[in-house]
Design a protein around this nucleic acid. Structure first.
Lengths: 162, 162
DNA sequence: TAATAGTTGACCAAAATAATCAGGATTAGT
DNA sequence: ACTAATCCTGATTATTTTGGTCAACTATTA
């Protein structure tokens, strides 16, 4: 397991996608704009997500990305595994071909915790996170001015297009 | 939250320390040798662990590191926080001074998951991990010639039944 | 049918950041 | 003084992130 900003970006982007995939394919340009993640980087990440069968792509105008399966069947661990391929814990790589006890121990110490973290992240589904966002009234925004009525996340991006 | 090899090394080293701290200060050279982590790197990591009050150091011959508090009061999250200082999820940094709703959303999406991961890792104590190691009969060591089923995460999780 | 434009897909290279290591300085016990 | 150990600071290496180019695909338009 590995949890870096890379994984964070991927999860964030997937939540964004999850929140609006019903309205058809979502473009990376949109996600890039809303979540402030560089487009090039998103392309890289979604390339992997696609090859892992987590999202589907539609090319051409009106295209973009859609979820390849229901949100309830996509876990945080899936997403992280896809973009941040797990470098194995030690040289041994879980194959058990370590040459002495020490290597084994090193490998083992971490792997058992690793497995627990994965178990946990496998229990968190994308659907949950999306729902959590939809339920939540804007927290940050309201702090600045008092009760600025904010727009559901649905219309967050009302930008300037013709 | 951030989980990299850095955090892995720190946790591994702390388990090693936890397993033998009763016999007095443990040297980094020893940990380096047993766990195959470079001494220089361990020094850096333990510098941070010390400044965070997780371990104490004793200089000079016969010196080394000891736990600064009982193993039951040290969590995995403590260790990871100490070495891998949590870069905040976004520019906003949880201060709520984002300049528009989008930033807030980005920040929020991840932070809520982040909090859940921390909650989880805060529930895993060093004592547990150490005990788990002590209970466990050598897995790798004896079995070079046997083709025992290798490390599924299911097996790793508990060592209770052997 | 042909041309145009919006979009992903693959690839490469540079810039920024983080991880890792090496060497010397400092402290304390004998 | 010598040695075993922690501490500190800089150098090196690896990874992350961004930026760019070009090809492939498809809906729209003429």
């Amino acid at each position: 397991m590995r949890l870096t900003t890379k994984g964070r970006f991927a999860v964030t982007a997937m939540i964004d996608l999850g929140m609006r995939h019903q309205r058809g394919p979502v473009t990376l340009a949109g996600i890039s704009d809303r979540q402030r993640i560089s487009l090039s980087y998103l392309e890289q990440l979604f390339g992997r997500l696609r090859r892992q069968g987590i999202v589907d792509s539609v090319r051409g105008p009106g295209g973009g990305y859609t979820l390849a399966r229901p949100m309830t069947e996509i876990t945080v661990a899936d997403i992280i595994r896809a973009v941040d391929e797990p470098i194995d814990a030690t040289q041994c790589g879980g194959l058990g071909n370590c040459h002495d006890d020490r290597e084994c121990m090193t490998h083992d110490l971490w792997m058992s915790l690793n497995a627990r973290i994965y178990d946990y992240l496998d229990s968190v589904h994308l659907a949950e996170l999306v729902q959590q966002q939809l339920d939540k009234p804007e927290q940050c925004a309201g702090k600045k001015h008092e009760h600025r009525r904010v727009v559901g996340s649905a219309d967050l991006k009302v930008a300037a297009n013709g």
